[in-house]
Amino acid sequence: MTSSGLRRDELAAFLRTRRARLSPAEVGLPDGTRRRTPGLRRQEVAQLAGMSIDYYIRLEQGRGPHPSRQVLAAMARALLLSRDEREYLFRIAGEHPPATVGPSREVSPGLRHLLDAMTEAPAYLVDAAYHVLAWNRLATHFVGDLATVPDARRNMIRWTFQQPMTDAHWADADVRRFVHSTVADLRAAYGRYPADPAIRELVIELLGTSPHFARLWAEHDVEERRPIVKRVAHPELGPLEFECRVLLVPETEQRLIVYVAEPDSPTQAVFRRLAERVGP
C-alpha cells in the first residue's frame, strides 16, 4: 500500500479512542492534576511516542501527513496496542503491518517507568522465551547485576537448567511446578515463532545439555502460568518467602515477574530495608 491508502478520518478516530482508554498509571506516568476527560492527554502520547505534540494533534484531527512506519510503530507502543490493533493501525494508515517473526524484545517506556516505580518489590521483564529485558534495583539481589552479563546469556530458562539435579532447590515442589510451567510457556513460544533463531537455538542447546529439560520438553505441555510461593535461603538476606507473580503483557507477549511479599511479613521488611539501602 502507499499513502493513497491512508484513511485519515478512521486513523484519527482510532487514535482518539485508544488514547481515551488509557490511564497515566498504565503507561508509567503520574496522575498529576485532576483530569476533565478520561484517558491520556495528547502531549503525553506524543511524549511516549517521541514525536512533536503538533504532529500528533494533526494526526488526531485527520489533517496530518502520511505517518511513516517508524511513527506508526512508536504510536503502537505508546498506546499499548495489541497485535490485532497494531495491524489495524498500519492498515488504516495505508501500510502493510510488520511481520511477527519473533517475540517482541522492545521495552516500552511505560514498562520501564513501572519497573522503576516498584521500589519495594523485586521485578524484571522477560520476553516470551524468558530472556531478561529489563529489571529494577531490588531484582539485582536475586538475579545479579545483569548489566555485567552479556545480553545473549540473560536467559532465565538457561540459568534454571544449568543447576545440577543435586541442587536442593529441585526438591521444592513449588520450584518444580514453576519450572514445568516455564518449559510449557517456552513450548508455546516455540510454536508461535518457529522462525525465531534465539528460541530455536535455546531449545536445541538445552535438549543437548539437560536431560531434565528434555524430559519436560517431551511432555508437550502448554499451560497457563499461575502464581507460586517461593522460599529462598538467600546467602546475604536470610530466609525469604514471597509469591512469584508472572503477569502477561498481552500486546508484546512479554512477562513481568514480580516478587510479592505478604504485608507486614519479615520478607516485606527485608524488601523495604533493601529499598532504603539502594535509594531512588
Rank of each mutant, 00 (worst) to 15 (best):
T2Y: 02
T2G: 13
S4T: 12
L6P: 02
R8L: 11
E10Q: 13
L11F: 13
T17S: 13
R18Q: 15
R19A: 05
A20N: 09
V27N: 07
G28H: 06
L29M: 07
P30K: 09
D31G: 10
G32D: 03
R41N: 06
R41F: 05
R42P: 09
R42T: 07
R42G: 05
E44L: 03
E44N: 02
E44R: 01
V45A: 04
I53Y: 00
Y55D: 07
R58C: 03
Q61H: 07
P65N: 13
P65S: 13
S68C: 07
A76F: 00
L79W: 01
L81R: 02
L81W: 03
R83L: 08
R83F: 06
E85K: 01
E85P: 02
E87N: 15
Y88V: 05
F90Y: 10
R91G: 00
I92H: 06
E95Y: 01
P103C: 12
P103L: 12
S108N: 04
G110K: 10
L111F: 05
R112F: 05
E120D: 13
A121C: 11
L125W: 01
V126T: 15
D127A: 09
H131M: 00
V132T: 14
V132E: 08
L133R: 05
W135D: 06
N136I: 04
R137K: 11
L138C: 04
A139E: 08
H141M: 08
H141S: 12
F142Y: 14
D145H: 08
D145G: 00
D145P: 02
D145N: 11
A147M: 00
A147S: 15
T148C: 06
V149I: 14
P150G: 08
D151I: 08
D151L: 09
R154H: 11
N155K: 14
R158M: 03
R158I: 01
Q163K: 14
D167Q: 08
A168P: 13
W170M: 03
W170D: 06
A171R: 10
A171F: 02
V175S: 08
R177P: 01
F178D: 12
V179C: 11
T182D: 11
A184S: 11
D185T: 15
R187P: 02
A188M: 09
A189S: 09
Y190V: 01
D196M: 10
A198L: 10
A198E: 10
R200C: 01
R200P: 00
V203L: 05
V203P: 00
I204V: 13
L206S: 10
L206N: 06
L206G: 05
G208E: 12
T209N: 07
S210M: 06
H212K: 07
F213P: 02
A214E: 05
R215F: 08
W217D: 01
R225S: 11
R226E: 12
P227N: 03
V229I: 14
A233I: 02
L237D: 02
L237I: 12
G238K: 14
G238E: 07
P239I: 09
P239Q: 04
F242Y: 15
E243D: 04
C244P: 00
R245L: 15
L247T: 14
V249S: 00
E251Y: 07
E251C: 04
R255S: 11
A261V: 05
P263W: 04
S265H: 08
P266N: 08
T267A: 04
A269N: 03
V270I: 13
V270A: 10
A275Y: 09
E276G: 10
V278K: 01
